[in-house]
């Protein structure tokens, strides 16, 4: 028996919109810890890891660990039928091949049940160890989204370089090149507007902008994005989901041959 009630149902809608273009189908795992997902894109270049902790739900019942294979496009279609203020409850049962999404209006005067078919998905689960990063950049998520969008109109790849001067985003394309530098800037009044750079050593890596732009669909989930860089590892682009968990995107770099 599975019953997860989320007062702020819009969070789940936003999560789906953030990942459904990167990953078409995935297993959602429910355990005592929370509702989670790990899935790679079809080319195994990018990975999304989502965690919504059980404490963040208004009601969380998960009798046994359960994995639900879901087509994310279909789930997104169903969640789009929930109103922006609706409470969403996810219901499932062992041994059935469906999951039910229940939408309740704030005033409790409209209750909708949407039942969706589950599917068997053979997904490869990767072990992602905790790691030390050479540089960690925290910046306003909207600013990062703007940079990726702007650079995406010029080139296909972005070189992200962190030095003690700041974080530099560089691209080159047929029409020319672009270079954007963000310096550390701490705002005491509005910490979410700050750009904070923790650098152990300088690092410079190249990534496909197509993926970065896909990750920025999570911008509505958090005002701040954290970008962790190491020359030995895929970059991690993390959006914290207030009081609930996170959505993390991992992206393998492009390497000079």
């Amino acid at each position: 028996m599975l019953e997860l009630r989320l007062i702020q149902g819009s969070l789940l809608k936003k999560v789906l919109e953030a990942i459904k273009d990167l990953v078409t189908e995935a297993n959602f795992d429910c355990s005592a810890t929370g509702f989670s997902l790990q899935a790679m894109d079809s080319s195994h270049v990018a990975l999304v890891a989502l965690l919504l902790r059980s404490e963040g739900f208004d009601h969380y019942r998960c009798d046994r660990n359960l994995s639900m294979g879901i087509n994310l496009n279909n789930m997104s279609k169903m969640l789009r039928c929930a109103g922006p203020e609706d409470i969403i409850t996810i219901k499932g049962d062992d041994g059935t091949d469906t999951v039910t999404f229940m939408f309740e209006s704030q005033k409790q005067d409209k209750i909708s049940d949407f039942e969706m078919k589950l599917m068997d998905i053979d997904s490869e689960h990767l072990g992602i160890p905790d790691a030390e990063y050479q540089a960690i950049v925290r910046m306003p998520s909207a600013e990062f989204a703007r940079i990726c969008k702007d650079l995406g109109s010029i080139g296909d790849t972005v070189v992200i370089s962190v030095t003690k001067e700041g974080v530099k985003f560089f691209t080159r394309g047929d029409v020319g090149s672009a270079n954007i530098v963000c310096r550390q800037n701490t705002s005491v009044d509005k910490p979410e507007d700050s750009t904070v750079i923790e650098m152990n050593e300088p690092v410079s890596l190249t990534f496909a902008l197509r993926y970065m732009n896909s990750f920025t669909k999570a911008t509505t989930l958090s005002e701040v994005v954290t970008i962790s860089l190491s020359s030995e590892l895929p970059v991690v682009v993390e959006y914290k989901i207030a009081e609930m968990g996170y959505i993390r995107f991992y992206l393998a770099p492009k390497i000079e041959d």
């Binding site: 990975l47 689960h125 072990g127 393998a252 000079e256 041959d257």
Partner: peptide, 14 residues
């Protein structure tokens, strides 16, 4: 020229 690495170059299955 640049070559795209994949995640399996960095992380193991399991």
């Amino acid at each position: 020229d640049t070559r795209q690495k994949t995640l399996t170059n960095y992380f193991c299955s399991g």
